[in-house]
């Protein structure tokens, strides 16, 4: 469903992605990990064209992201994305955060959009907060709303950019639970995260990145049992130490 082929990207003279390639099949969950500054976030932002690429190709559901004729807004509406800092719209109530793009991008009618929004708020357990503003919610609740906001557009796949990195420890699990349920439902997901417990539980494959390169791309069990590269071994031993 998502195919990333020899992608290069640089900011000025600094190359942040150098020749990344991987494939994600329908229903697969991929966890992307690696040290900070390794290009993980940049890579998934290239998947929905938020970041342009200099060379290579990214194809999502048969559509080439970087092609000039591609209608990027239309493609992005089908690719959900959840950000580290939630980025809910603070001037809108929770319910309006969920209906805005449904109405303005998909052209759904108000009642239809609200019905979809409420069913998703039920799913993330936040129906009773529908009429609050995002600022009145905890970080974990905000991130669940953000996930619901993306799902409201009925995306064919979801991208998660460090969805729990900005959360207090006691709120991480409520967000991960939502993501686990989503994965079990068969959603195609690319997740950038340091949560190795989550990776072990739901990821089909782990993509390990270092300095703009994908240095390891292996089934989850293989990756944790026997990482092939020294760099991945070091990384794992550091984050699994405690």
């Amino acid at each position: 469903m998502i195919s990333i082929r020899d992608v290069h990207k640089s900011y000025g003279t600094v190359e942040v992605l150098s020749g990344c390639s991987t494939e994600v099949k329908k229903g697969e969950v991929i966890v992307v990990c690696g040290p900070s500054g390794s290009g993980k976030s940049t890579l998934i932002k290239c998947v929905n064209g938020l970041e342009p690429i200099q060379s290579g190709e990214i194809v999502v559901d048969g559509i080439s992201v970087a092609a000039r004729r591609t209608n990027l807004p239309k493609l992005r509406a089908r690719v959900g994305m959840v950000f580290q800092h939630f980025d809910l719209f603070p001037h809108l109530k929770v319910i309006d955060n969920l209906t805005l793009a449904q109405r303005k991008v998909l052209g759904r009618r108000e009642e239809e959009a609200r019905a979809r929004a409420f069913s998703l708020l039920d799913r993330v357990g936040l129906r009773e907060h529908a009429h609050k503003h995002p600022g009145e919610l905890s970080g974990g609740q905000q991130q669940r709303v953000a996930i619901a906001r993306s799902l409201a557009l009925d995306p064919i796949c979801m991208l998660f950019d460090e969805p729990t990195s900005a959360l207090d420890p006691e709120m991480i699990n409520e967000v991960l639970d939502v993501m686990v349920a989503l994965a079990r439902d068969g959603m195609t997901m690319i997740v950038v995260t340091h949560e190795m417990g989550f990776a072990r539980r739901v990821a089909h494959r782990i993509v390990f990145m270092d300095r703009g390169k994908i240095v390891e791309d292996a089934p989850t069990a293989d990756f944790f049992a026997a990482p092939k590269t020294d760099r991945a071994r070091q990384f794992l031993s550091k984050i699994l130490q405690h």
């Binding site: 807004p73 239309k74 992005r76 719209f89 793009a101 991008v105």
Partner: peptide, 12 residues
């Protein structure tokens, strides 16, 4: 991040 989130939802 606000503009980015809006774009990611498919807004022009």
């Amino acid at each position: 991040g606000q503009a980015q989130a809006a774009l990611a939802l498919g807004m022009r």
